[in-house]
Amino acid sequence: MADVTTTAGLGPGPTASRRAVRGPRWLSQVTKFARRRTLGFAGGVVVVLMLLLAVFAPIVSPYDPEESSFLDQLKPPSREHLLGTDQFGRDVMSRLIYGAQTALVVGFGASVAGCSAGAILGLVGAYKGGKTDLLLERLNDVILSFPLIILAVAVVAALGTGLLNVIIAITIPIIPRVARVIRSSGLTLRQMQYVEAARALGVSDTRIIFRHLMPNVVAPYLILLSAFLGQAILLESSLSFLGLGVAEPKPAWGLMLRGAGVQFLEQAPWLAIAPGVAISAAVFAFNLLGDSLRDAFDPKLRV
């Protein structure tokens, strides 16, 4: 994620910084981004923090997230268990930290896969035009008439639960949404002279799409990616909450809210608070980052 924050500093505006900042170039760009887009920078910081937590989970987390202890069931927050324990006596803090892994793997997996497939389909439709375009557009219409969550639920129902299937279930609804946006950029790109030149030179369609069109939609691609990251994390938590996502005992935020969060609401309200705060903070951070990336690169883009 660190590289996304740095590329964000490359946005439009005066490239020559009035103040000479010591240190490498990327650092000065990060500080510029921080000054100009404080909210987006704050989002970026949270994202980086979350990434670090997920990567170093085995070191940071105080307990094994899947280890249950019958002596410690439903303990309120204390010095030993900062966020208390759940109904199996598992440490909530550790499950929260490991839950970040699940959220990020699903979030990145689904949004990278969905945005990439969407971008390719969008460009193919825009470049080829005619019947191919019409067919792809109709297919998009069909998939878009499923509400996001319902399509995801249907896909999970078909494939079964589990990490990979959840990623696939979240990828599919993202594809047409990305394809639509990228297609519209592709339509203008197709008119460009360098595309015409490439075609006149006899360059193959595949090569034109990947080498000539693709690099020109990197900005909207990155913006869409960051926008759908938050949505994917949210969708993952909803699916897990419904029991259609990641399965116990694997720690996932939505799963922590399922059952325990509702069942022991009166007895153990801490179970319902921490995972919800984690989901909200993560999605909030990704949205802030995505918003300021959009403002910096392409304010007209509607996601």
Binding site: G230, L234, S237, S238, F241, G254, L257, G261, V262, L265, E266, P269, A272, I273, P275, G276, I279, S280, A281, A282, V283, F284, N287, L288, D291
Partner: peptide, 20 residues
């Protein structure tokens, strides 16, 4: 932006908790 980030099911849980 918070409205987009907070899952509605969690907001529901919190509402129930507050009422309770």
């Amino acid at each position: 932006i918070a409205g987009l980030a907070i899952p509605s099911f969690w907001l529901g849980i919190v509402l129930i908790l507050v009422l309770l």
